[in-house]
Amino acid sequence: MRNPGPLFTLLAGVVLAGGIGIVNLATGTGVAPVAGAANAASVGSTSAPPPTTSAAPKAAAPKAAAPARADYAGRVTGGGASVAVSVRDGHAIAYLCDGKKVEAWLQGVTVGGKLDLKGAKNASLTGSFDVASVTGTVTAAGKTWQFSAPTAAKPAGLYRAAPKVKGKTGKVGWIVQPDGSQVGILTTEEDSAAAPALNFASGATATVDGVPVTAEPVSGLAGNGDF
């Protein structure tokens, strides 16, 4: 009986060659496809998203320079008193008044829009100002107030006069608010009291002790008043 070994070997070779040929025909290449290769190629070819860029922060608007000349009038926080400030060429004068007994005249220099004013009996005012308003702290008669006052267009602002009262020189200060309201104090050697109202129809006049008195505007804009 013949040995079948060579025959089986020949048949195995034919089967193996046929299998390789079928694979080549199916893929169109001489190399069998590798599982997952198509997916890997697809993932690798996906374009990366463009880098995100954040918007540059907006630059802060430059702060308006402090004016060389300005007038302000307003009220302290919570009411109870009024304050007026006039600035002219590096100097300032201010007046605090409650319309009854408390008042203070203050003056000093201005540097870079800052105020540091002093008055009698340890009165003081510190703050800052720009083209729109003045804000700060004022102390007088043992009390301290915060305040913010807008710019004042005439007739609003600060006024004063030095009338004769019973033969002696008195002193009057007025603050006229932008809304037209006004407050003031008449001070004499004996007492202090509410000042008579100013009449702007006759040129900022008032009647003091039966005598007409013309008030002087203290204005940084107009250049009036003693700085």
Rank of each mutant, 00 (worst) to 15 (best):
R2V: 13
P4R: 08
P6Q: 10
L11C: 08
L11H: 07
G18Q: 10
G18F: 08
G19K: 06
G21R: 13
I22R: 15
V23S: 05
N24V: 15
A26K: 04
G28F: 07
T29C: 10
T29A: 13
A32M: 07
A35E: 11
A38T: 14
A38K: 12
N39G: 15
A40F: 08
A41S: 12
A41D: 11
S42K: 15
T46Y: 13
S47T: 15
S47Q: 15
A48D: 14
P50N: 12
P50K: 13
P51I: 06
T53G: 12
A55R: 10
A56F: 12
A56C: 10
A56V: 13
K58R: 15
K63Y: 04
A66W: 08
A66S: 09
P67A: 03
P67W: 03
A68K: 13
A68V: 09
R69G: 04
A70Y: 05
D71M: 04
Y72W: 03
A81H: 01
S82P: 04
V83T: 07
A84D: 02
A84Y: 01
A84T: 00
V85F: 01
V87M: 00
R88N: 04
D89A: 10
G90M: 06
I93R: 11
L96M: 01
K100R: 13
K101F: 10
V102D: 11
A104Y: 03
A104W: 02
W105M: 09
W105I: 07
Q107S: 09
V109C: 11
T110F: 00
G112Q: 04
G113S: 07
G113I: 04
L115D: 02
D116P: 04
D116L: 09
D116G: 09
K118C: 06
K118R: 12
G119F: 00
G119I: 01
A120M: 08
K121M: 08
N122P: 02
T126P: 09
G127P: 03
F129E: 03
F129V: 05
V131K: 13
A132M: 09
A132N: 11
S133I: 03
S133V: 07
G136I: 01
V138N: 00
T139N: 10
K143E: 12
K143W: 09
T144A: 03
W145I: 00
Q146P: 05
F147R: 04
A149F: 02
P150V: 06
T151D: 02
A152P: 02
A152D: 00
A153C: 07
A156H: 01
G157M: 05
A162S: 15
A162T: 15
K164A: 13
K164L: 14
K164I: 14
K164Y: 12
G167D: 03
T169F: 12
T169N: 14
G170Q: 02
G170C: 03
K171C: 12
K171N: 14
V172M: 04
Q177D: 07
P178T: 05
S181W: 07
V183D: 02
T188Y: 01
A193F: 09
A197H: 01
L198T: 02
L198Y: 01
A204S: 05
T205S: 15
T205D: 11
A206C: 06
V208Q: 03
V208C: 05
D209I: 00
G210T: 06
V211K: 14
A215Q: 00
S219K: 00
G220C: 05
A222R: 10
G223C: 10
N224W: 06
G225A: 08
D226E: 08
